[in-house]
């Protein structure tokens, strides 16, 4: 197991946010994600938003059970976080940026 601090500091985060439509809840999830990334991953992240209402086939690859779901495609291994991303602590844990308490 690598030390989180080393990799977390230099690795690029390729993130994908799966949503269903542009409901306020989905928009809130994106805003939450963006602000967390800006704070903790500034300059080394990308967020791709996939609207499954428009492109339902794109859900298959990652086996999306529910939306909003955020998938960390890079760095590997793939991580998945489910929910509105309003709980920053839990998001950071899900992204392996924080240890689980």
């Amino acid at each position: 197991m690598r030390a989180n601090s080393d990799s977390a500091d230099c690795e690029f985060y390729q993130l994908r946010l799966y949503v269903a439509g542009t409901t306020p809840k989905m928009k809130a999830a994106f805003a939450n994600l963006e602000s967390i990334c800006e704070e903790h991953l500034k300059g080394r992240y990308s967020i791709e938003v996939i609207d499954l209402l428009e492109n339902p086939q794109l859900a298959a690859g990652h086996q999306i059970f529910a939306v909003p779901t955020m998938v960390r495609q890079l760095p590997e291994p793939i991580r998945k976080i489910i929910g509105d991303l309003s709980n920053t602590e839990r998001v950071l844990v899900g992204l392996d940026l924080r240890p689980l308490k």
């Binding site: 059970f65 529910a66 939306v67 976080i81 709980n87 839990r90």
Partner: peptide
């Protein structure tokens, strides 16, 4: 997926 919530409920959409 890792559930970002704890204790309280959150609304999500299920396929």
């Amino acid at each position: 997926g890792f559930p970002i919530i704890e204790g309280q409920s959150s609304e999500i959409e299920i396929a």
